[in-house]
Design a protein around this nucleic acid. Structure first.
Lengths: 247, 247
DNA sequence: CCAAAAGTGTTAACCCTACACCCATGG
DNA sequence: CCATGGGTGTAGGGTTAACACTTTTGG
């Protein structure tokens, strides 16, 4: 087996994150509507290559920083928030994906709806939120990356509780159903949805109700001791959920 | 957003592969048996760190080489074979996983049973095949990586046709069932298995039969136009199946 | 009282599983 | 003819999807 020493490699490692949340207001680029839409923040590139284009938030991996920590750091710099869910998506490393040789380890994250609406990162000038269905021209292969992140979200929503990553700690079943409907792109039967979620035993009912329109709806909280979904082969320091649950 | 220039980074990128196949002979380290077992090749490290320990086959990423190409290259160097299935597993990048800073992009691959039995790589001296259930002490975090690869295999066997990656182009339903049983670790009902696989419409029956014991069993071929499983967000040059189907 | 969302009940279709049974071959 | 794996049939249980129905609020 031949191994080059590696010391002369000009290969650099970047970490970027597809940050997803739900938005129902019209404060994002693209057509507004009454039902929520999947939204994500992009940063405008201030240097070549692709100067002026929109790109995923990210940065170079620091020498003394783990991959997940780098994703969480750039996420905080961009939005000022900690995610409710964070998982590695894929490592992209085609030779021609950038003028210089860059390996991009991509993460995807979910933010709670309300927090995201008020969030301000460290450089709000060059950050804007876009409707995931109406994205602008993107730098590098980021358009394909976002497509894959959305596919992963849809897929994982089918067999896990990831959709709760979009919701505040207390929510109604209608909130949760609406999140699923937005992700999956189709309406769900309220009666069957209710039965399916409480068959999983992962929601605990509270004694509070949301009032204001028609019959009040009971608020639920997620069972704190259960992960929203399998996040992959995490190292010990990554398995704690406490850090990602605090804002 | 702060971005270091990255040019002073001592971070290096390695690509390794968890190569899996089925073996029924006793020619591998660990207890032999009549039913096949999952086997994988490991290489003995000839230098520090972990000199003398067993490790996953791999090497440094070349500057002008894509990630998938690097995985296929080291796979060929180790076994002399092209895989029937190759997919990225995960990028491992904890700071303390190696004395120097190394990002390891791990792939997992399936080899056909018969091909693997006769395979000889470019350095057979330092390569040995092990029963996946009885592995030796491994270098770095490779034990955990292999665990995750086996989990991914079991998982993917539940909803895709990956198990066919273990089989030659023509096989009986009993062959296929046995592969699934080995992966999943439990017996499957032959009658129900038959119905489930031909409900997927991905197997084409041939007019040949395998004789030699009891009633002859019909040989099947896989529908060539269907991928064994979703391999992720592949770039155009990676989507061709031709290269991975030839030995 | 009416509209509309919250929540419960019911039923038919579907799928999965277990297992009985017949078929074809080697010994 | 017998043992054994190949292959087919079928009945029961569980899950899903569709939709009728009752409950509770705001207006």
């Amino acid at each position: 087996m031949t191994r080059s020493s590696g010391t002369e490699d000009p290969i650099r490692v970047a970490v970027s994150t597809v940050i997803l949340t739900l938005r129902r207001d019209g404060a994002l680029q693209g057509p507004a509507g009454p039902s929520p839409r999947i939204a994500l923040p992009l940063v405008r590139r201030t240097r070549d290559p692709y100067q002026g284009s929109w790109a995923l938030p990210g940065g170079w991996l620091d020498a003394e920083e783990g991959l997940t920590a780098a994703a969480a750091r750039t996420l905080g710099e961009t939005t000022g928030l900690a995610p409710s869910y964070l998982e590695q998506l894929y490592a992209f490393g085609a030779v021609d994906r950038s003028p210089s040789r860059v390996i991009s380890v991509i993460y995807w994250a979910l933010l709670r709806e309300e927090e995201a609406a008020a969030a301000v990162g460290s450089d709000p000038e060059n950050v804007a939120w876009f409707d995931a269905a109406h994205l602008p021209e993107l730098a590098f292969d980021h358009a394909r990356i976002i497509e894959y992140a959305l596919w992963r979200l849809r897929n994982k929503a089918g067999y896990s509780r990831v959709a709760q990553g979009f919701l505040p700690p207390e929510f109604t079943l209608a909130d949760l159903r609406e999140a699923y409907e937005t992700i999956l792109g189709r309406k769900l039967d309220p009666a069957n949805f209710r039965r399916q979620v409480d068959a999983t035993r992962t929601l605990v009912p509270t004694n509070a109700f949301r009032t204001g329109s028609h019959r009040p709806a009971r608020l639920y909280r997620d069972a704190a001791d259960v992960e929203l979904a399998d996040r992959g082969p995490l190292s010990p320091e990554e398995t704690s959920t406490a850090e990602t649950r605090t804002s």
